[in-house]
C-alpha cells in the first residue's frame, strides 16, 4: 500500500502544486491517474517514486519513506517514464545487467511479453524505433514483477494495434499484490483497463474511487434527444450526441463508465463530484 501523507510540493518554493495532499493506494488495482495538463500527474508519480522531495509530508511504500531511495523500496518499484534512454545493447544483455536487481524478475515473462509485441530478445535496443523502444521497456518493466509499477503516458507513441495489445498486456499481468498506476490524458486508451480512478485538479484529489463505486452512484449515457434532466448532474455535447451523467437510483440499471464525461465533470464541478462520491448526495437542482 502507498500512503501519501499531507504532501505539499512546489517547484519554485511558492505556488504549490499540491497542498496537504492525502491519498491511499491499495494493492490489487490498476489505477488511472487523470488530470489536465499541468495538474501535477507526473509530479505526483515522481513524488511516489522518491524522485522529487516534498516541501512537507511524506510518502510511505513498503513501510518506508520513498524519498530515502532505499534499495528495499527501489527493488519493488519500477517506473516507465514518458521519456527514457535505453543503452545500445541487446535486450538479452539489458536483462542480464538489470534483472538481478529485481528479485521477482521472470525471463519467461519477458520473452512472452516481447513475443506479444513481435520484438526480438536478441535484438539491439538502439535499432528500435521510439514506439518499439517503449514497448520493449514496458515488456521489461512488467517482467520485473515489482509490487509498484508506474507508467507515465504509456500509450504515447504507440500505434493503434499496439494500444489494443497494451490493454491486454497490462490486464494479463495484474495480480492481487500489485499496484499499477497509469497516468494519461488519453483516457480512451485505458478506460476499459482501469478498476480505480484518481482525478487531480487544482491542488486536490477530486476522485479516488473504484469504477464500481462510481458506477453505483452515477449513470452515464449518450443521447441524441434532450432528456428529463431532473437527475442529470452533468451534460456535454459530443460527436455522438449529448453525454449525460445522472445520479443513479438503486432501481436503475448500471451503465458503462464514460471516463471522458466524468473527467469533464470533475473539472467543472469538483465539489459536487466529491460530495456525490463521498455519499453526501448534493441537491442537483442547485
Amino acid at each position: 500500500m502507498i500512503k501519501v501523507k499531507n504532501i505539499t510540493f512546489s517547484y519554485n518554493g511558492f505556488m504549490p502544486i499540491f497542498r496537504n495532499l492525502n491519498l491511499d493506494i491499495q494493492e490489487g488495482g490498476i489505477y488511472g491517474l487523470l488530470g489536465q495538463n499541468g495538474a501535477g500527474k507526473s509530479t505526483l508519480l515522481h513524488l511516489m517514486c522518491g524522485m522529487l522531495t516534498p516541501d512537507d509530508g511524506e510518502i510511505i511504500f513498503n513501510d518506508k519513506n520513498v524519498r530515502l531511495r532505499l534499495p528495499s523500496t527501489l527493488c519493488d518499484t519500477f517506473i516507465v517514464p514518458e521519456e527514457f534512454d535505453l543503452p545500445a545493447i541487446t535486450m538479452a544483455e539489458y536483462c542480464k545487467i538489470n534483472a538481478p536487481f529485481y528479485p521477482k524478475f521472470s525471463v519467461d515473462d519477458l520473452k512472452a511479453n516481447l513475443a506479444m509485441f513481435d520484438l526480438d530478445y536478441e535484438g539491439n535496443l538502439a535499432a528500435l524505433s521510439m514506439g518499439q523502444k517503449k514497448k520493449a521497456f514496458m515488456c521489461f518493466a512488467l517482467a520485473c514483477n515489482t509490487k509498484l509499477l508506474i507508467m507515465d503516458e504509456p500509450t504515447n507513441g504507440l500505434d493503434i494495434p499496439s494500444k489494443v495489445q497494451f490493454r491486454r498486456f497490462i490486464a494479463s499481468h495484474m495480480t492481487d499484490d500489485r499496484i499499477i498506476i497509469i497516468s494519461t490524458h488519453q483516457v480512451h486508451d485505458i478506460e476499459l483497463l482501469l478498476d480505480h480512478i484518481i482525478v487531480i485538479n487544482g491542488n486536490d484529489v477530486v476522485i479516488n474511487s473504484t469504477i464500481n463505486s462510481i458506477c453505483s452512484k452515477l449513470n452515464f449515457y449518450t443521447s441524441l434527444e434532450p432528456i428529463d434532466e431532473t437527475k442529470v448532474v452533468f451534460s456535454s455535447k459530443t460527436l455522438g450526441g449529448i453525454a449525460y451523467i445522472s445520479l443513479r437510483n438503486d432501481s436503475d440499471e448500471e451503465s458503462e463508465l464514460n471516463l471522458e464525461s466524468l473527467f469533464q465533470f470533475c473539472l467543472t464541478q469538483p465539489e459536487m463530484v466529491k460530495a456525490i462520491l463521498s455519499d453526501n448526495k448534493p441537491n442537483n437542482e442547485q
Binding site: L74, F84, D85
Partner: peptide, 15 residues
C-alpha cells in the same frame, strides 16, 4: 538530463 536522473535515482542501490 531528466531521463539520466530517473535512470540514476531508480537504480537499485544506496546513494
Amino acid at each position: 538530463s531528466k531521463s539520466g536522473k530517473i535512470n540514476s535515482f531508480m537504480s537499485v542501490g544506496t546513494p
